[in-house]
Amino acid sequence: MGYIQRRNRRIFLIFLFPVIVALFATTIYPMLYAGWLSFRNYDLAKPFIPRVFVGWANYAEVLSSGPFLHALITTFKLMAITLSVQLVLGVGIALLVTQKLRGMGLVRTLLLIPMMISPVIVGLVWLFLYFPELGYLNYFLSLIGLGPVSWITSTDWALLAIAIADIWQWTPFVMMGTAAALQSLSPEPYEAARIDGNSRWDVFSRVTLPQLKPVLVSLMFLRAIDAFKIYDIIFVLTKGGPADSTEVISLYIYRQSFTFWRMGVGAAASFVSLIIISVLITLFFKSLQRGQASKG
């Protein structure tokens, strides 16, 4: 352990310090604070309520709460719809835009636009489309003799309406990742399959798809995490309603924290859902990977 080495390490630490501070300030401290809050009776609006330690009471309340369970189920429902459609559409569009046709580059760039828009704006865009009576979507439906559909004001449609907006925004993400993966695939096996006479479907399902699988699993993993946190679009479009048809976990947490001002319960709900999502998503994707390994 020479002088130079020791000095290098010191310099290393000096450079690292701001990062550590930033990480602590933006991630670790809020996490710890939320953890501390989750064991407390902390009502922001009612300072006359003693802000005392309550043990696991907040967790017990969240876990036994009907609305929490409902929100959890709704979240997974939404996730199932959006992820499956985004997967199918994303791969489909990726297959189209990776064709060597004139203008595909422009098409691809245009398709990425939804992804670059803030979710709040996406919500507003779709609000105009869905708006009861005055919305464009119902106008277009009326032109072909359909509707009107109560997109965001009926319990039958609202979750689907949210899903459509989310699909519109995030399919490009799946498309982009898939297109990149497609372009990195060696073209020669496809020529081999052409000469051998394998059908298009066989080539897609047995050559393309298996090779895309690792990328698709990663893309879906990222989307699953995002989908679990979905908030902005719902907040703009339905705020959880009508009835409780679009009430997802993040809205439940928001309501506990900023409507009932029960910061402790909100924090506990955050941790519970963090654990649930971590466990479920990990299990799900582990099983996917295992399925892939055993096939090999």
Binding site: S186, E188, P189, E191, A192, R206, V207, P210, Q211, G296
Partner: peptide, 9 residues
């Protein structure tokens, strides 16, 4: 093929 063109998976 020159690069064998085997299906890698």
């Amino acid at each position: 093929f020159q690069n064998y063109a085997l299906y890698p998976h």
